[in-house]
């Protein structure tokens, strides 16, 4: 293995969680890279759905936006957006939803709305998009987020999407159909909910990361599972595939577009 960045390691770790033939609701950024890396390596029959309505899409380059033409041209079908949300997501036809966020708390609740008070925010973030209902309905949710004390926080400024709420079964009691955040992939490894308390705890570390590093990056007293797995470094195939995908993508996004005069 050649040296790799933590973003690459995160992307590879997330890709490995995806089973072939599973149906994934994909967001832009690291999740899109992880899902397509899975498709190009161990999961060729994975079904990728982007909220723009492209179902079973197989893009050659990663989209910059959720609705790039590449996604439509390589899709099995393109459906109107209300169908994606009601007939597929709400109807329980999504196995895995991928989410990112500006803030996450110990129960996997997510904030992508504001930092500071809603009525007078210090930082206005983009907002909810598909996240609240993806968080609710996908059979399982994977979260990808880089960890700092500002992002992995004791208390969210705003709860955009439900994780396990206050834990101990609160989510299920509220009637959320999906299974919630089963894994949080971050720069030191992976967190997963404790079976009873539903509090996120450290379950796996990248081969070169430590428990101390994990604790230092998280804004709440991080619990540690009885057994911590080691996430093997990316293989040459994984890394070569990801880097080639990213290189194709950078080249495509910078390519001048003919102005339609």
């Amino acid at each position: 293995m050649s040296a790799c960045t933590r973003d690459e390691w995160m992307t590879v770790a997330a890709a490995r969680l995806l089973r072939d033939r599973s149906v994934c609701f994909v967001g832009i950024g690291l999740p899109s890279a992880a899902c397509n890396l899975a498709r190009l390596t161990h999961a060729p029959e994975i079904v990728l759905i982007y909220e723009s309505g492209t179902i079973g899409t197989r893009p050659q380059v990663l989209p910059l936006s959720i609705g790039d033409g590449e996604l439509a041209e390589t899709a099995a079908c393109v459906v109107p957006l209300p169908e994606v949300f009601s007939y597929y997501l709400q109807a329980g036809r999504i196995d895995v939803g991928f989410l990112g966020a500006a803030q996450i708390d110990r129960h996997g609740n997510l904030n992508s709305t504001v930092i500071g008070p809603y009525g007078a925010p210090k930082t206005r973030l983009p907002g909810a998009g598909g996240a609240p209902e993806i968080a609710l309905h996908a059979r399982q949710v994977f979260v990808m987020a880089r960890a700092t004390k500002r992002s992995f926080v004791e208390r969210l400024d705003f709860r955009t999407s439900a994780g396990y709420l206050d834990g101990h079964g609160a989510r299920a009691r509220l009637g959320a159909a999906g299974g919630g955040p089963r894994a949080v992939i971050t720069d030191f490894g992976m967190l997963a909910p404790h079976p009873q308390s539903e509090e996120l705890q450290l379950v796996a570390l990248f081969a070169d990361a430590s428990v101390e590093e994990a604790r230092a990056a998280v804004g709440w007293p991080l619990g540690v599972a009885d057994r911590i797995d080691t996430i093997a470094a990316p293989t040459a195939l994984e890394l070569d595939t990801l880097r080639a995908l990213n290189a194709r993508t950078r080249e495509a996004h910078a390519r001048p577009v003919r102005i339609p005069l």
């Binding site: 709400q90 309905h137 999407s161 509220l174 009637g175």
Partner: peptide, 13 residues
């Protein structure tokens, strides 16, 4: 209508 907005602060605002 939808089965949605559960466990989010949006309805409060």
């Amino acid at each position: 209508m939808l089965r949605g907005y559960i466990g989010t602060d949006l309805p409060a605002h």
